[in-house]
Amino acid sequence: MLDEAGFVIQSERMQSDWAAENLQVIRTLMERSALYRRALAPIMLTVGVIGSLAGFAAFYLESRSVPTFIVFWLVTGGVALGTSFLLVRRQSMREGEPFWSPPTRRVALALAPPLVVGFLLAVLVLVSSFAERGWPFEPKALPGLWMILYGCAICSAGFFMARGIRFLGLLFSLCGLLSISLGSLDLDFPTLLVANICMAATFGGLHVAYGVYLYFTEKKKIAA
């Protein structure tokens, strides 16, 4: 009788809905545990704008020495890192989630080694410059090395983030390789000018381009 009244069918549907909802909750929890889920578009756009502005500033200020170039871009990197930190913190506070969550920790740990190596390479060149010794390596290779290391950092962090970001890391590393290859050709360019343009194009341009791409795709993903 209950069967005829559709009771069983109704309860089957309820069970199925419940099962589908449970699967969705499980998926969300697993992603929360494993993947870094903060919106990256605002971070990428902000870092890109900072990189581009720094590129214009370097162009107009006409930094003429290697130490000035290094300090200028290290400060820019520090500002970009600090701003990203604040943006991530604001997002996590808005969503009522802990800032230093396991995925954030994993992303930070994956980013750290290549970024620290890039920083130490810059310090090495700076120290050699102030001690008036020979360069440990050609300083014009530094922007390329920074790009390669930054690309490696993003690729490593990409294992704990949305998959697309690893492509950005690969692009950075390829740009770094290209920059080093062009540097070895001894082209007749004012080297620091080219280096500043390379830095603005990659740390500014690539970030802005990826940020714009994410701005349109991330919203769709959330809506889906």
């Binding site: 499980i26 697993m30 545990s33 494993a34």
Partner: peptide, 15 residues
């Protein structure tokens, strides 16, 4: 418990 299992299934260990 389902929440605990879901979080642990995605990570080697969780504090």
């Amino acid at each position: 418990r389902l929440g605990i299992m879901s979080l642990l299934a995605a990570s080697p260990d969780v504090a």
